[in-house]
Design a protein around this nucleic acid. Structure first.
Lengths: 226, 226
DNA sequence: AATGGAATCGGTGACAACCCTGAAGGAACC
DNA sequence: GGTTCCTTCAGGGTTGTCACCGATTCCATT
């Protein structure tokens, strides 16, 4: 099921077991994971707190780090941030009890290549480790949606019905105004008179029910028109 | 909000074959894909140009649309954008000859849930379709990195040295101005006279080497001060 | 032929924004 | 005690913004 694209074929040095480092502040869980995946990957070390993790990962330089998100003293985020600054090749796979969108987004922002919940089965976890080592991104099905939604939201499509209220020329003028152009600059740019620009701007503000160019700028930036 | 990763596999209505719609401007390729995946999914229609695709997808409302990226008259992007506006539940899986980062990023931005190259094997394509239907995100291994890199790059951390040039009061005034407050509003908010606000704003613009409040607004939003 | 929208301009007027000069009180530093 | 900076405020001026009142031309629809 979860072995869709094993393209570990072409990458050199990817025929051996992945070297894996485990980080979790619950030592029992740490031991459990270690014994479960021991045969399918090569565990080169473990750590149960943030500082020790940063230290040991820097020494061992594993291919993949399996890391808990919620930990005292900075959490998994700090480990990832500080490690990637020195060893950019290390791949991080977050393993968390939480499937909250904010946690997923935060961990991806600092550079993790995957995020799975602790309810995952052993075989799937091993598969995920192999895929992350190969450069793939691994997410639990529900979590993948959060990431893509958040990503798309950074420059969304916004098919806006309100924009249709504006005539083509009005939209054109609106974009300049929202970018902070003065009337004079817009007039020069579009080769029309300042008075025409004023007319268009008035129409835009009236149609969008805004009261000045500042609100227009915010309106436009919020729906990423500019 | 507390479902395991297994949830989508057990979700109701997901035990039958996925209904799939195919879009590609090469009819031969269309026929090839259709015959290859015919047993493993339920192909409910095909289209070989953008307009027909938008029309037919709107009628059939498939669960998954397998779509070519590069097509005349708007490409796959337009199909995705216009379809999602009316049918948000339709999942799009891009199938392209290109593995250029820009193509991948663009298609994800408009809302696709996956992107694989046409070199993919049939079995893997079928698996990808099933996973996209379930809500998972599917990428060829080398492409996943592009998306995550681009995503991580959207949230830089800027500790700004330029901000230290401003006195505390100036920073305070600056935040209001950057948000679009008028001088009068700032004066009322901070309980000072309009003339004082003018003084502070002038100092801010001079110190930051900006020429008006619009540039100041952009300056502030870019480094996420407001 | 008539209607109406879009695009183009003009005038007037009321503010808002921005610049310059100047200045007074206070805190901090040497 | 002098210097420097911050904060506060004022007068006077230019330019920018926006509204309300007009107008003409072009074009598509009726």
């Amino acid at each position: 099921m979860n072995k869709s694209m094993d393209e570990s074929r072409n990458a050199p040095g990817h025929d051996s077991l992945p070297t894996v480092f485990l980080v979790d502040d619950h030592e029992l869980f740490l031991a459990g994971v270690r014994s479960e995946i021991a045969g399918a990957v090569s565990v080169v070390g473990t750590a149960s707190d943030v500082d020790a993790a940063i230290e040991l990962i820097g020494e061992r330089v594993p291919e993949v780090v399996l890391i808990d998100v919620h930990m005292p003293n900075g959490g998994g985020e700090r480990v990832i941030r500080e490690t990637l600054a020195r060893h950019p090749a290390v791949q991080f796979l977050a393993l968390s009890v939480s499937d909250a969108p904010d946690d997923v987004i935060a961990i991806i922002r600092v550079g993790a290549r995957g995020y799975v919940t602790k309810t995952i089965a052993t075989a799937e976890l091993v598969d995920a480790i192999w895929r992350v080592r190969a450069g793939d991104a691994v997410f639990s099905p529900r979590l993948a949606g959060f990431v893509l939604d958040a990503f798309a939201a950074t420059a969304p499509l916004d098919l806006d019905p309100e924009l249709d209220l504006l005539s083509p020329r009005e939209q054109e003028v609106m974009r300049f105004i929202a970018r902070g152009y003065t009337y004079k600059e817009v007039a020069r740019e579009l080769v029309i008179s300042i008075k025409t620009v004023e007319t268009h701007v008035s129409a835009v503000l009236r149609k969008l029910q805004l009261s000045n160019r500042h609100e227009l700028a915010r309106w436009a930036t919020q729906r990423r028109i500019i």
